[in-house]
């Protein structure tokens, strides 16, 4: 099937079997290997990308279903300079092997937007907000991203730092 995907602001026309996931289209057909394949079944978050500003697992989505969507991968988060989150991950040692990192950063980027929009989480005491980014909130909101190296202290510090910059 011929489809056009809009990735990091640029259109790419591809001839794809409908079975190709968004993740495989990015990695194997477009050479955008920032998005990682950990489990390929929605359980680790390494493949997280942004679709129309929202975080999703690209391993559980078909590329052909994303025509017309604005897709942002980790490669598209920096325009010349690193994004505040990317910079904060470096400063706070938010990784060890780095395998989960692009997914963590894409996920956290959208998570901070969800927080700003007042979305509650499972651990929010009230559904009406306000939502403070407590330890419990951070852990819950980022629970879709596993880190095999267990760099959670650094990851959490980086996200807090970036949120501070954003505020």
């Amino acid at each position: 099937m011929q489809i056009t995907l809009t990735i990091n602001g640029a259109d790419h026309t591809l001839d794809l079997d409908p079975r190709v996931t968004l993740l495989d289209a990015l990695r194997d057909h477009l050479g955008l290997t920032g998005s990682r394949k950990g489990c390929d079944q929605g359980q680790c978050g390494a493949c997280t990308v942004l679709v129309n500003g929202r975080r999703i697992n690209s391993c559980l989505s078909l590329a052909v279903m994303h025509e017309g969507d604005a897709i942002t991968t980790v490669e598209g988060l920096s325009d010349g300079a690193l994004s505040p989150l990317q910079q904060a991950f470096i400063e706070h040692d938010g990784f060890q092997c780095g395998y989960c990192t692009p997914g963590q950063i894409c996920s956290a980027t959208a998570m901070l937007d969800e927080l700003a929009a007042g979305w509650p989480s499972h651990v929010s005491p009230s559904l009406d907000g306000p939502c403070e980014l407590t330890e419990a909130e951070l852990a819950e909101r980022m629970s879709g991203n596993l880190c095999r190296c267990s760099c959670y202290p650094g990851i959490n510090a980086a996200i807090r730092d970036a949120k501070g910059h954003q505020a």
Partner: peptide, 23 residues
């Protein structure tokens, strides 16, 4: 939903992950 059917919000938020709930 949050105001009048909070049990539904709560059930949804207890499921899966932020990424999965978006899809």
């Amino acid at each position: 939903i949050r105001r009048d059917w909070p049990v539904l919000s709560r059930a949804l938020l207890a499921g899966a992950s932020g990424q999965l709930r978006n899809k």
